[in-house]
Design a protein around this nucleic acid. Structure first.
Lengths: 349, 349
DNA sequence: GTGAAAGCGCTAACAG
DNA sequence: CTGTTAGCGCTTTCAC
């Protein structure tokens, strides 16, 4: 970053005894109408000088930055992280770089980051939206032709290409499977579902799957807006006391709910799977270990990222036109020990 | 991204009936020598037009991008992720944006990403280096005055500001604590330690702490370059068989080793903490749950990121000059159930 | 307090 | 096959 001896395309052209245009052609690999001699010569001069083109100058001229902005609701989320990796790997391979931000579940931050990325002239945006409501800015962006794809979380009005997973279907199958394995009653434990379509879909799927098996699925849907340990314990105790002599299972529709559920079971001295069947989202490391393994729904998050990037770059290059696509990738149910053994739940000792 | 009706500083100046220079002053909040009237007027025109400055053009002129590059060895690593978050939060607050890449433990990729980020004129770089060897590029960068800080992982020659954690000290204390709690023999389980100073420090600390307590600490240092489940099982069995009638504990110096160790114990039907004391790195979610909680060393990774960013931005702004700083942040030992109960190990049934 | 003009480093017609 | 020229959209002296 020394200022004096900065080497620009001008330096190179002077040393090589050619024009800047020719050097530029070389840089952009437009060798067609270029003598091999000058090509080699320019190469040598560039080598010798250690010249590196200034991308910013190029960006200004070409009005394209080869930058993709990614805004996720939480970078530290162990699941989201694979989405980011999927985006990165795909983008990197095609010569794009990725600029990341974490909205921390705040719509205000999300908007702020969208704007600052657009200001920075990113070629496109991949967003894991905080809220399922479309807002003014999104419409404006849409109108002004900003390339954007929604990953994982969706908004109610399909304005942009969207890549997500089969939350409804996978959850429905999961719950149905529990019943068909021999459980008499399946409850839902979920984190707060106010803002995300993802959680809502899983909830609806639970209701749909339970409808034919139990009287009031709403009554055994436990939602935990505060994620308080005690609430989980109370709910769990509640569920068991209200269902004596039944084989019970719980579907925890978020990793947080699953974690808290497992913890509550531990604290109440309930054994999994002897006293209680347990399954949930997602396939985190610890789910392999606890109680000999917990049955989970695994979402293809790397692929969600990859597919999002793929759609985005296709839009950017004009390879894809027309109305927004909506893609659901298939989740996988991983059966483990925690749902192995439907039995009458014993009351906590 | 419409081309026709693009609104530039020129549009604004024309509408406002002032010069581009004045608008530029407004944009950069140089209100000192500016009548309130024109200031307000320009504000209104900008509002009305919905003008947004083109950051790229500004970057080209000012030769500063307010972009920070972060290259980590693995973005999906649940620990690293907090480092990134620390960097992001700090940078965002100061108006910088973060461009991220994952070297996937490849020095070649690391170099490639460094170069492409430098080409993109990032103001500075934060790197979680793959290898402790300094290489040519690093020296070149150093000489050309590129601002760079090394986070978590270090290189042997201190070329750049470095922020890491007290790996040696924390590991030493951890092992000493195990002995003082009543364990007779403490083994080390570690992932491959070829390339990272982090792992090497922990290994050396183990040797130092064990020296006075046991004859040949090297012999009970188990390294697993392949991370194969069976190797863990064999090693564990080995350690126990060779130490009959002793209270045994294991220090797993990486999360991977800890995970595999716990799994191996499970498979061998060894109970934690009844048959075996276990502790290790890092404080991942699942360590709270397994066997009523596993004792771990928790590294302040968010702060490592934050401090790295802080140093970097200080260098960039010239608030910090002189030789590279080397900072070790303090880890915290979290005592849990897994080391609660030093007992004679029973042979696996 | 404001404007004119030059230029950041590159690309892309258009000539030749 | 190569050079000339005119910007991209902004900032920044230097005048006035």
């Amino acid at each position: 970053m020394n200022d004096k001896d900065k080497i620009t395309i001008d330096t190179v052209s002077r040393y090589a005894g050619v024009s800047k245009a020719t050097v530029s052609r070389y840089l952009n690999k437009k060798y067609e109408h270029m003598s091999e001699q000058t090509r080699l010569h320019i190469r040598d001069v560039i080598d010798e000088l250690g010249y590196r083109p200034n991308i910013i100058a190029r960006n200004l001229k070409t009005k394209t930055t080869k930058l993709i902005g990614v805004i996720v609701s939480d970078v530290t989320n162990p699941v989201t992280v694979h989405l980011i990796k999927g985006v990165m790997d795909y983008c990197t391979k095609l010569g794009y770089q990725v600029i990341t931000a974490s909205s921390d579940e705040s719509v205000a931050k999300e908007q702020e980051y969208i704007l600052s990325m657009v200001d920075r002239q990113v070629d496109g945006l991949i967003i894991n939206v905080v809220d399922y409501n479309e807002y003014e800015l999104l419409n404006t962006l849409k109108e002004s032709g900003v390339n954007m794809v929604l990953a994982d979380r969706t908004i109610n009005k399909i304005l942009f290409d969207t890549v997500t997973t089969d939350n409804y279907l996978a959850s429905k199958i999961m719950v149905e499977k529990l019943y068909s394995m021999g459980y008499d009653e399946v409850a839902l434990f979920s984190s707060d579902l106010l803002k995300s379509n993802v959680r809502l879909s899983r909830y609806k799927a639970f209701l749909a799957a339970s409808k034919l098996k139990t009287a009031n699925p709403e009554e055994i849907s436990y939602i935990f807006p505060k994620e308080r340990e005690d609430d989980y314990k109370t709910a769990l105790q509640n569920f068991i006391e209200n269902n004596p002599n039944k084989r019970l299972a719980i579907f925890a529709s978020t990793p947080m709910a699953l974690l808290n559920l497992v913890n509550a079971a531990y604290e109440l001295n309930l054994h999994i799977p002897e006293d209680l069947g347990v399954c949930g989202y997602d396939n985190l490391t610890w789910t392999k270990l606890i109680g000999g393994g917990i049955t989970v729904v695994e979402q293809p998050f790397f692929d969600v990222g990859k597919e999002s990037a793929s759609l985005l770059l296709k839009r950017i290059n004009g390879e894809l036109t027309g109305p927004p696509k909506y893609i659901e990738l298939e989740s996988k149910i991983i059966l483990r020990n925690s749902t192995r053994n439907p039995q009458i739940a014993k009351f906590p000792k």
